Computed example of a mutant assay.
Amino acid sequence: MALSGCYLLGFQGKDRGDRIGGGARHGIERERFLRVPQIIWGLNNQKIALARAALTARYLNRSLLMPTLSASLSHNSSSPAQTIPFDAVFSLDSFNSRCSGFVRIAREADVPDGAPAVEVIKGSGRRWTAARDLEHLEECRRQDHEVLEILGKNPFLWPDHWAVREYVTIFQCLELTSSIISDVEYVASRLELASSSRNPSYVAVHMRIERDWMIHCRNTEKRALEKEGKKLSICSSKEEIIDRVRRIESLKRPALVYLAVADVLLEEGESSLLRGWGEDLVPVEKKKLGVLDRYARHPYLIQAAIDYEICRRATVFVGNSFSTFSSLVVLQRTLDAPHSCESSFAYNLVTDKGSARPWLADLSKASLSEISYESLEVSCAVTPAP
């Protein structure tokens, strides 16, 4: 039986009063743990959920038990998501080294045999406000049982209490495993070989034209117009993306353009993406670049992680400001080059000259939602299109 409040369900074994290194770093006498539900959806939704779970563990003075991620996009009862452990994607040792003194991710084997546990369910619905959720966390914070397990919703759906800079701390502790980095380096080397000798760099464009995205963005635009009278700029066709990228005046040409797209979700074949770019922009996707086999050996989550790194490293990145993937790429690029308004752009937002708008992430925001998922926030001061 699970309870909605933080109440003990049952004891097993004896209480441990000895000091453990990880627990001592958190300012407590022994290490205590937080266990969370499986983390699902796309790569950056999972990174946000992971960070939210880690920040919750920190708030509760607990170590986060290594969560299970989802290798596939499927996440319904008829076709549950394929699971993948955290340390198959990210280095656990690197995380704990980088985040030492801030928060720790522990293995299930770190939990003492017979440790007492309590199960809780987060509330939901309109009545479960952020303030009420914080009160609930404060109640859980007072519990001293070694394992606290939160049941129910994926942490991405939990109420958010953390500022952007706190998320940044967690994101900077995430390092891909060496095997994934090896594939990233291979793809990067192929891009270098394909680049022009006059411009040995590349532009990365995160093209959100997959069928699931187009349905989502059109429905969102329609609801905003009908219910709030707002005209949102979310959807962009392939032709609009190409035109707005071409109009970016600061692009050094000729330029190689890497098209980051979830190929399996496309309505049309890959070849259609390569047409219409003109002579001075040379588009490539995975097949043309000769790296399709490298991607094919991995599940969707790791394929997305490789693309994320390739987009992060690009000389110029162009994405959709309403996309979580694009938003977190720009967040990371802002950390790498905090004062550059000429290296990242949002093609769904247009300047008065018809080009994609320059884009930096505002790290001072009080909430990650203001600059990431379903946000039209860009901080570079430019004149928008009328």
Score class of each variant (00 low, 15 high):
Ala106Ile: 06
Ala106Ser: 15
Ala109Gly: 03
Pro112Trp: 08
Gly114Leu: 08
Ala115Ser: 15
Pro116Asp: 12
Ala117Tyr: 09
Ala117Pro: 00
Val120Glu: 05
Val120Arg: 07
Lys122Asp: 06
Ser124Ile: 01
Gly125Tyr: 02
Arg126Tyr: 12
Trp128Gly: 03
Thr129Gly: 02
Ala130Cys: 07
Ala131Lys: 15
Ala131Thr: 09
Arg132Thr: 08
Asp133Asn: 10
Leu134Ala: 00
Cys140Lys: 01
Cys140Ala: 08
Asp144Trp: 02
Val147Cys: 11
Glu149Tyr: 00
Glu149Asn: 06
Ile150Lys: 00
Lys153Leu: 15
Lys153Ile: 05
Asn154Gln: 03
Pro155Tyr: 07
Pro155Met: 13
Phe156Gln: 00
Leu157Cys: 03
Trp158Tyr: 10
Trp158Met: 05
Pro159Met: 10
Trp162His: 12
Trp162Leu: 01
Ala163Cys: 02
Val164Gly: 05
Glu166Phe: 07
Tyr167Pro: 01
Val168Arg: 12
Thr169Phe: 04
Leu174Asp: 06
Leu176Trp: 11
Thr177Tyr: 05
Ile180Cys: 09
Ile180Leu: 14
Ile181Val: 09
Asp183His: 12
Asp183Lys: 15
Val184His: 02
Tyr186His: 10
Ala188Trp: 01
Leu191Val: 09
Leu191Ser: 06
Ala194Met: 14
Ser196Ala: 14
Asn199Lys: 08
Pro200Val: 00
Ser201Asp: 14
Ala204Ile: 06
Ala204Tyr: 06
Val205His: 10
Arg208Ala: 02
Ile209Ser: 04
Asp212Met: 09
Trp213Gly: 05
Trp213Ile: 08
Arg218Asp: 09
Thr220Gln: 09
Lys222Thr: 14
Arg223Glu: 11
Arg223Tyr: 02
Glu226Cys: 01
Leu232Lys: 09
Ile234Ser: 00
Ser236Tyr: 03
Ser236Lys: 02
Ser237Gly: 11
Lys238Leu: 13
Glu239Tyr: 07
Ile241Gln: 04
Asp243Leu: 08
Arg246Val: 01
Ile248Asn: 06
Glu249Gln: 11
Ser250Gln: 05
Lys252Pro: 04
